[in-house]
Structure formats: structure tokens, C-alpha cells
């Protein structure tokens, strides 16, 4: 870490560059698919059938997928940054402290055992509830000023409990296909989503984002510990529940739409933190943009595989994230334990 750190880019510049990157990736993900670009091909043709087909692929398949990827990536990045800042712990991400798997468990319960239109609407809320319960459980288990070790141990316990319960629910589910679908929930997938899925994703996601709006300065004060933050006028328990609820809403919606996609919430804030001078408040929006960019990029990689190889997006994020996670553990061991 450099002793003096000249700030290369202002926050505005970072957000602009990040926004531009996300836009480019978003457009790319509209044009890259399992099939060679049919667009240019269609542009030269006057055949109405072909242009209708291309339009269908764009509006019904690629657009929803790109939108969902964008929103979920942003949620994962944002929630990772918010949780890390709140708990002042670089490993405290929704995936590691069990809130993603808690969300998955409740979404799975509603999806496989429920039925009808209501259950579609209930899934994001069930995910929110599951996420909130898992987080409260880990928090109760690890304690307030939790060390990295206790937090991870509590997270491991909740994650494996949730995983085994998901597996049990899938075994008990009436559908014969359910058993094979655990990988969709535990690794995550954005394939075969429709605009309806996107619309179902949005309400809880926006509610979560809305709750985190303007929270930056309060999170900044936590840099000096909860006591100092409290004497600066921050209502700590309200702040905590606000973040927990916001993360649960956004993660609950994301997981019930695409399963729990690992490591985005961990890697993105870490990569971006030096760029914003380690300041939690400035990290939040940038981390949302970074999460969106990473997930869009991962989904483009997924689609570069031949169509019959149905690679899940979580496979890519885990392949990037797991080595990074190990690196973090080693570095944290060296500096903090």
C-alpha cells in the first residue's frame, strides 16, 4: 500500500468511466449470444420473417437477460460493499454470512411447494425473509464486533444448514425435475429469463437500493468504530437494521430470480476500494457499477461457450472469485490475526 496516495480520479470520473464500461458490456451482451450475430445478417435482408425473429431474440431473450444480469450484478456489488462497511470486515458479504443461501432456501420453499401466480409475487419476499433470518442468525452467533474467524464460522454453519435444507426441499418437491436443480440455486443462472422475471425482480431490488441511498456518510463514520460513530450522531442500531433490511430485499429478489451467484459481492468492493481511497461512502455506488460490469462480463463469457454447454454464470464468478478469496484469507491472516 502506498504511503502517499495521490488521487488519480475523482468520484465523478470513476462513476462516468464505470458507467461507460457497463454500457459497453450491456450492449455487447445484447449482441453476443450462442449464435453468430444474426443482427448484421438481418440488417441487410428485407425478409420480414427474419427481422421478426431477430427482434424476438433481442426483446424477449437477450434484453431481459442483460437487464437481469445488470441489476443483479449491481445489487451484489452494492450489498457486498454495504455489508463489509457496516461490519467493518472485508469478508462479511451476503454470500459468506449466509444471507444468500437463506434467501435461496425460502425462495425454493415457495417456488417448489407453492403454486399459482401468488407464489411468483411471494418469491422475492420469501427470499428477503430468508436472507434477513440468516443474517440475524449469523449476527447473533458471531456477535457484534465479530472477528473474521467467528463471522466465517457462523457463515459456514448457516450456509451448510441452508444448503442441506434446500436439498431436502428439492427432494420432497412434487416435481421430478426438482432434485437436479440444486445447482441452479447454489451456483446461480441467468439463462432463459423473460421480461416477466425482470419485472418481478425490480420492486424488492429498488426498495433495497432506496434504503441504502444516502447512507454513505454514516458508514464512513463507522471507520472509527461504533462508539465514535454513535457520538457523531449515528443511530447505530437503526443503521444496522437499515442495511440488513436493504441487503435482504435486494439479495432476496436477486436470489429468487437467479439463485445465489457467488463471490461478486466479495471481489468487487475489494478491487474498487483503493480507487475511492478506501472510503465506504464513495465505494457504494462504484461497487454497484463494478458488480454490474463483472456480472455482465461473466455472462458474456458464459455465452461464448457453445450453446449445448449450459455453463452457469456462478461457475464463472466462482472461478474468478475463489482464488481471490483465498488470496484475501492469506493476506488477512498475515495482517490481522
Amino acid at each position: 500500500m502506498p504511503i502517499e496516495s495521490p488521487r488519480l480520479w475523482s468520484q465523478r470520473q470513476l462513476l462516468l468511466v464505470g458507467g461507460a464500461l457497463v454500457s459497453v458490456l450491456f450492449v455487447l451482451s445484447l449482441f453476443i449470444g450462442q449464435n453468430p450475430l444474426p443482427v448484421l445478417l438481418a440488417a441487410g435482408q428485407s425478409d420480414a420473417d427474419i427481422s421478426a425473429t431477430v427482434q424476438m431474440i433481442f426483446t424477449q431473450i437477450r434484453l431481459p437477460r442483460a437487464l437481469i444480469t445488470l441489476v443483479i450484478g449491481a445489487s451484489l456489488g452494492l450489498c457486498g460493499a454495504a455489508m463489509q462497511s457496516l461490519l467493518r470486515n472485508p469478508l462479511a458479504t451476503p454470500g459468506l454470512v449466509g444471507s444468500s443461501s437463506g434467501a435461496a432456501l425460502f425462495a425454493v420453499l415457495v417456488f417448489y411447494l407453492g403454486g399459482g401466480v401468488m407464489s411468483w409475487l411471494l418469491m422475492p419476499l420469501a427470499g428477503t425473509l430468508g436472507s434477513l433470518l440468516a443474517m440475524a442468525f449469523v449476527f447473533a452467533l458471531a456477535g457484534r464486533d465479530s472477528s473474521i474467524v467467528t463471522l466465517i464460522l457462523a457463515g459456514v454453519a448457516v450456509n451448510s444448514l441452508a444448503l442441506s435444507l434446500i436439498s431436502l426441499v428439492l427432494n420432497l418437491a412434487p416435481s421430478p425435475y426438482a432434485v437436479q436443480e440444486i445447482v441452479l440455486w447454489t451456483l446461480g443462472s441467468v439463462a432463459n429469463k423473460s421480461l416477466r422475471d425482470f419485472l418481478l425482480l425490480m420492486p424488492a431490488t429498488l426498495a433495497g437500493w432506496w434504503l441504502l441511498r444516502g447512507i454513505g456518510p454514516s458508514l464512513n463514520t463507522l471507520t472509527l468504530g461504533e462508539d465514535t460513530a454513535a457520538t457523531l450522531g449515528v443511530n447505530i442500531s437503526r443503521l444496522r437494521w437499515r442495511v440488513f433490511l436493504a441487503v435482504s430485499l435486494a439479495i432476496g429478489a436477486a436470489v429468487s430470480t437467479a439463485g445465489s451467484i457467488a463471490f461478486v459481492g466479495l471481489v468487487v468492493p475489494h478491487l474498487l476500494r483503493p480507487l475511492v481511497g478506501y472510503e465506504p461512502g464513495r465505494l457504494l455506488p462504484l461497487s454497484a457499477i463494478g458488480g454490474a460490469a463483472l456480472l455482465l462480463a461473466a455472462d458474456i463469457v458464459v455465452r461464448l461457450f457453445p450453446g449445448h454447454l449450459d455453463i452457469k454464470i456462478g461457475v464463472i464468478t466462482s472461478m474468478v472469485g475463489a482464488p481471490f478469496f483465498l488470496y484475501l484469507i492469506v493476506r488477512t491472516r498475515r495482517t490481522q490475526l
Binding site: R88, G225, Y278
Partner: peptide, 15 residues
Amino acid sequence: IAYLAQERTAHWPLT
């Protein structure tokens, strides 16, 4: 009322 805590750490290396 300003308070200087006994805790001397900063959790993130801000400037």
C-alpha cells in the same frame, strides 16, 4: 459533545 475513544484503530485506511 465530541468524544475521543480509547480505541485507536481505523478499520479502513482513509487519508
